[in-house]
Nucleic acid binder design. Sequence first.
DNA 1: TATGTTGAGTAACGGCGTTACGCTATCGGT
DNA 2: ACCGATAGCGTAACGCCGTTACTCAACATA
Lengths: 215, 215
Amino acid sequence: MGQPNTQAERLREVSRRRREREKDDLRRRILDAAGELFLEHGYEGLSMRQIAERIGYSATTIYRYYEDKDDLLYAIVHDGFLRFGRQLAKAAQSSEDPRERLAALGHAYIEFGLRNPVYYRMMFMQRSDFLFDSRAEQKGPMIDSFGVLRQSVEQAMESGALRRGDPETTSTVIWAVVHGITSLALAGAKRFNKKQVRESADLAMRMIRDGLGRT
Amino acid sequence: MGQPNTQAERLREVSRRRREREKDDLRRRILDAAGELFLEHGYEGLSMRQIAERIGYSATTIYRYYEDKDDLLYAIVHDGFLRFGRQLAKAAQSSEDPRERLAALGHAYIEFGLRNPVYYRMMFMQRSDFLFDSRAEQKGPMIDSFGVLRQSVEQAMESGALRRGDPETTSTVIWAVVHGITSLALAGAKRFNKKQVRESADLAMRMIRDGLGRT
DNA sequence: TATGTTGAGTAACGGCGTTACGCTATCGGT
DNA sequence: ACCGATAGCGTAACGCCGTTACTCAACATA
């Protein structure tokens, strides 16, 4: 019953798949073009009409694939969160020692921000509402990254590298520190040279270790 | 020579002053209307046409008083920095003890952000480029606030409340912590209830004290 | 009183996000 | 092989936006 038997039925099936593939394909091309434009000109230079022009379609066509501009922007940011999550996960695996693991996480966080300033600004500064957006509840990419951090914090507490306490609060504070360093570095990129950023980051990591670690 | 003698000369003088007063007055009214609109609808709902409508002038008139929208926005943010600076200065005077002074500064910073979310977002998150804007070099409001912090840090280092080191770097890290807490609280206002924010802030202040303090 | 200057308004340009509507090619059933 | 339905896309338009060119009236100056 569920199996296609006649040639006509098979044709209908593959035809439907081809259309879906093409649909996904265009959706991808829209997202890619939007991402490029976003990287090149920031949010200001990200207009539906320019995206459309880049891929050779009319602007209204985009609305067949994305609800509105915010929906498209969310998709871009979601891509950013995926990359972000991957880098953090990689850093978390770099060491078994709880102290080193936390340090690796912190440095990976800051480095992501410095290497992807346009993304970081959008993800954590300009549109930080996306962080806790209801859309993310399904598979929330940020929650995952925060989960990696909290797990590392719990491990560090068990091993004695961090003082015991509410892991949620401690993780939040650690997040606040690395986010603070990163966003200040991005805000005053002209004023903070690399050496200053590195020194601040090092002192911050030491502050975390001593301030949350020693009893 | 410089003194006006005849009635005509005196009239010319007071007339010129009246015009200047009126000019300043309208400039103020534009700024106030823009500030209100900004508070009510955020940056999105801040349009030149709506500002003009609110004060009963044509939109183009605004351009006689402000270069462009960014210039006007900068004036709004500048007002925010003035209030911010005043609150920090007040907190700095609240105690002579270096440790308490630093704590007061930190809490005042976070409280400003929580009580003025629209301003804080614009000043430190969405348009953080204003922080180090060249326009601020003349009388830079942020530099002053940072100066207050750095002075307190230097004092704390001399008294032994903070470990000795580069005051600039240490101040930057402290700033990063309170900014991180504040911006995360504002980003996830729905998720972070007041108790969680307070607990995070308290832990963060303790982390600063222990992590940057003890040798 | 004649002339220059200042402060305001009108109209318009180009761009934006978004929607209503129309067209065309392909699909699905006969 | 035909034919109505549907999917995919484009055109035109709406109502905004920031900004500028131009105009006009009121006033200051001489």
